[in-house]
Design a protein around this nucleic acid. Sequence first.
DNA 1: GACACCTCTGGAACGCTGTTCCAGCGAGTC
DNA 2: GACTCGCTGGAACAGCGTTCCAGAGGTGTC
Lengths: 223, 223
Amino acid sequence: MAARTRRPERRQEPLSRERIVSAAVELLDTVGEGGLTFRALAERLATGPGAIYWHVTGKTELLAAAAEAVVGPAIAGADTDATPQEAIRALALGVFDAIDAHPWVGAQLARTSWQSPMLRVFERVGRQVQALRVPEAAQFTAASALMNYILGVAGQNAVNTRTVQPGTDRTEFLDTVATAWAELDPGQYAFTRDVAGQLREHDDRTEFLAGIDLILTGIAARR
Amino acid sequence: MAARTRRPERRQEPLSRERIVSAAVELLDTVGEGGLTFRALAERLATGPGAIYWHVTGKTELLAAAAEAVVGPAIAGADTDATPQEAIRALALGVFDAIDAHPWVGAQLARTSWQSPMLRVFERVGRQVQALRVPEAAQFTAASALMNYILGVAGQNAVNTRTVQPGTDRTEFLDTVATAWAELDPGQYAFTRDVAGQLREHDDRTEFLAGIDLILTGIAARR
DNA sequence: GACACCTCTGGAACGCTGTTCCAGCGAGTC
DNA sequence: GACTCGCTGGAACAGCGTTCCAGAGGTGTC
């Protein structure tokens, strides 16, 4: 028994939404999307699965909160004294870099439509679209196109990091795919073969920005 | 036993990969993404879950095959005697319409990187990019941007149909979101409020095509 | 001090999933 | 008739998100 001598074995910090969310982010970062389970999370927090549900309604909300925690700060910067184009680029890169640092965020954003934080991105992209003097009737189209492109890249980024074995690095992965492309049937896949080299050597970030610029050029030309 | 008179109670058709995939497509179309389980599929095929695994390696392959079955025919058309822009539009619309008719395909395509059938889309988009006389060094970028945009729309389309309750129709759903947008804080969400009306009245297909055209314009301007 | 509250805990259990296992059926072959 | 082998389908397994609930621990009231 020795009930007298038992130490105050109660957990140092009490459970809280913040502690749960930040533990979830750590788990997602280290073990990946599939690694976030309520049991693993409970173990990390030295509690049981049931306790977590007191602070969080379910996995959906938990993932949304984790994404918010990571993306929120990344898009918080001010876009004063910058051209609209530069502001949009900076915003898009903020999202991109957050996804790059936390691949699971890409899947999460692509899965959850325009709730926060992507609604905030939409708002700020839209304002810059207005600053570009895009006709009112075309503003929704312009901002939507940018959002869809960003979310498309987000999703693909997530897919790629999910596909790659945890052991291999990015260069090796690109090399494998590029080699596979180069060995496709020349009749059926002439173009894909042609650009296999560009796939091998491209930089994701630069390429992402080039796509943004393509759309921005399109928007400017239509003004 | 009356073994003599027993009808050929053996299932009419034997199990086969095609039967399984087409049953999966039916299930996905009627019950949605979450409705495709091996048990439901087995019941529909009047067999057990184990039998399915003889013809299909697992759920991943099954989903890929289902997407291929739906998207494959949609992008099979020939693009002879059409301008490159028209060919790209037609191709993109083929993918869009397939997704529109089978919402789960959007999620599937967005989830599986550029395997078939999206690699075939990439190839054919790329050829038209070459036909547009885009400099070699920019071809990968141009084709990738189009692909990422298409996949972004695909993913968002899937999200929206997943969010909406099976009861309500699209108009009602758009109305709800647009109303919510119109009631946002004017200080923080000025732009979003401004375009709430455009959200309510927009047509997905037209909007999708407008985005494609924006990128095409950007590509042409950079030539 | 005793009692009743009420927030919060965490382990057990539920129903569901994808997947594996394997006894056995039925047609074709020696 | 026996043997083989492609194929079947029901049972079982491990894991998931989620729910349930007995009870611990702190706080306020008499």
